[in-house]
């Protein structure tokens, strides 16, 4: 009873927030609604008993991704640019992608209805989802997790390479050379030109 009510409330809010992300003009509101939508999905996870997934969802998607979105939005635009029309010129490819996504979704939904109406919501394990996920990740799916780790490592290295710039060939571990000692008569290190002393006549 309570579960059903909560399910409809949460999914209703999630759908409304998701629609809002697309329809709201102000990008800050869109980012905030994205965070709201993701946390509602996290609430759905919690409702299904997948509490690890719930915490991970909140921690990563709301606590990091949505905030990064906001961060970028706030850094990127002035106030006037924050309410641009979010539709771009690529209407045709976008609608094609939307149709494909809708078909996929419909296929999944129909298939689920065909198989069973009550899927097991908890992963197989000793009843604790966290321990079960841990055993699954380090047991049968260890290879996949390691590969994922390598992909993330490559992404990290690539990000640091992009941040440093490709042209620089210097050893990244080398200490930064100390700036030259400023001249005795002026503080050249701070770009201050020493004032000329008045000529003694």
């Amino acid at each position: 009873m309570l579960t059903t009510v909560l399910f409809f409330v949460l999914s209703g809010f999630a759908l409304a927030a998701a629609l809002g992300v697309v329809l709201v003009r102000n990008t800050v509101y869109a980012a905030l609604l994205l965070g709201g939508c993701l946390s509602m999905v996290g609430g759905l996870y919690a409702l299904m008993g997948a509490d690890f997934l719930f915490a991970a969802q909140i921690l990563i998607y709301v606590g990091a991704i949505a905030i990064l979105f906001l961060f970028v939005v706030l850094l990127a635009g002035r106030r006037a640019e924050l309410s641009e029309i979010p539709f771009n010129d690529l209407v045709l490819p976008a609608s094609a992608a939307a149709v494909v996504a809708a078909m996929l979704l419909a296929g999944i939904v129909l298939q689920i209805n065909g198989i069973s109406s009550d899927l097991p919501v908890k992963p197989a394990g000793n009843g604790l989802t966290t321990a079960g996920i841990g055993q699954l990740l380090l047991g049968p799916h260890a290879l996949g997790m390691e590969i994922l780790g390598i992909v993330l490592l490559v992404a990290l290295v690539g990000a640091s390479l992009l941040a440093r710039g490709l042209g620089e060939s210097e050893d990244p571990m080398a200490p930064v050379p100390a700036p030259a000692m400023p001249e005795a008569n002026g503080d050249l290190a701070h770009g201050i030109v020493p004032a000329k002393e008045p000529q003694q006549v």
Partner: peptide, 28 residues
């Protein structure tokens, strides 16, 4: 008595950042 207490605390405290960023932006 949550089974995921540690993660839960970190996850919830992360949400506050959202409010802080919004407070910074909304103040003009």
């Amino acid at each position: 008595n949550l089974d995921i207490g540690v993660l839960y605390v970190f996850a919830c405290s992360g949400i506050s950042v959202l409010g802080i960023v919004l407070a910074g932006w909304a103040s003009a």
